[in-house]
Every structure is written in C-alpha cells, then in structure tokens.
Nucleic acid binder design. Structure first.
Lengths: 103, 103
DNA sequence: TGACAATATCAGAAAAATTTGATATGTTGT
DNA sequence: ACAACATATCAAATTTTTCTGATATTGTCA
C-alpha cells in the first residue's frame, strides 16, 4: 500500500522537489540512445547533476529517496540510468491525502 | 502563495500525520463551550495530548509546524485553543502537486 | 578480457529536526 | 488584582537527515 508519510517526507525536501520539477519538465534525455533519434522520456544522472550543480553521490542519494518513496521509476538504458516520475504514485498520493484528511 | 515543500515536510512526519488523522476524524471538542451543548468542530491540546500520549510542549511544537504550513487553523475558545484542518490548503496542495508534477 | 565511464554505497562530518523540562505568557473566574 | 489552568517559548540533549570524499559495483566497448 501507499505510504503517505514517506512520500510527503520525500517531497518535503527542497532539493528533491526541485528534481521532481526538473523531471516533470524534461522532454528528452541527453545521452545517445541506440536505435532512436535521441528523444526519450526521463533524465539521467548526468543531466540532473548538470541542472542542479550537485555532485554525483548527492544526486544518487536523493534519487534513491525518491525511488524508494515510489515517486520515481528508474530505467537502465545502456550505461546510463534514466529517471522519470511515477505518475500513478503521485495520483494515488493526492487521492489518499484527500481521502484521509478531508471530510 | 502555497508552499508545497513546507506542506510536504509538515505531513512527512509520522507524529504530525497522526495528528492530522485525528483532526480529520474528530467530531467535537471535549471542553465545556459556553452557549453550546458541547459539539463544536476541532480538537484542543488536551485532547491531542490524551489521544497521542505526548506531553504538552511536544504537542505545541507540532501544532505550530502544522499551523505554519497552513494545514491547521487555530481558534481560541475560552481558555482552550482548538485546532481544525484547513481544508482549503489541503485541496490547494493536492492540486498544486498535480499541476507541478503531472503532465 | 581490460580500460573506462556511470552509478551505488559507505563512513564520517555537518546541519537540521525532534524531544524534554523549565519557564513565560495568556485566559478565565473569583 | 489574584489564583488556577491552558498554551507557548526557550535552551540543551538527542536523534535524524543531509552532504561529501573515497571506494565499490555495474555496464559498455574495444
């Protein structure tokens, strides 16, 4: 089942919220994808590092938090790992907040 | 404007989420209200203390966090302070999360 | 396979949040 | 005003998170 506290906590850090916004507004990845002409959803670590100015281990740490909360799904593409928002979790979250707390 | 990170952070603590659930499921206050037959919305500190087993200053601290996030509205009734969920904030929050992060 | 690039994990340092007891402020009724 | 009760604030101790550099793991390509 959906862990509302964990998701809230994950979103409740300014760095992670910024990353979520970045993912939400990203059109395509930066790294060459074989068999495509470059446009695939999600962002890889290198892009998140570039956009936020954070070092690698810090990005990794926050992506793990987001992933473990179910907010982000990761996908290995060649040597890069891509991240994109798990929209189902977000919808469920918004719904559960309302169901739990509105009457 | 609504501070999504701050609200998330406020909800992202298990103690505070429990308090929110308590408020959402409370029918009436415990303390004698002049001019009523006892049934008013919200809970006062004493009830939150009783339900959660927390000491007074701890309740006060968390209620301040919730209030400052705009999740809870406080109302002085006689010598008691009552708290109830600010439904507008909660609705706005759920809406903004979706607007920000879903595409 | 080896060399290299991308990401993950670890341990310690630093920063932030939580908890508590003590004390202060505010409110009601006498 | 005073006494009694309800809530707020403070400072210090504790706990939890975050950040970083170092190292480990994983994947790709020659």
């Amino acid at each position: 089942m959906i862990d509302t506290v964990k998701i809230s906590r994950a979103l409740g850090d300014p760095v992670r919220y910024k990353i979520m916004l970045l993912l939400a507004n990203s059109e395509s990845g930066c790294c060459p994808q074989p068999g495509t002409n470059g446009a695939l959803p999600g962002l890889c670590n290198c892009e998140i590092m570039a956009h936020t100015g954070m070092i690698q281990s810090r990005v990794s740490y926050h992506m793990k938090e987001l992933t473990e909360a179910g907010l982000v799904t990761e996908e290995q593409r060649g040597k890069w790992k891509y991240y994109y928002i798990n929209t189902a979790t977000l919808k469920d979250y918004a719904g559960k907040i309302k169901a739990d707390l509105l009457r």
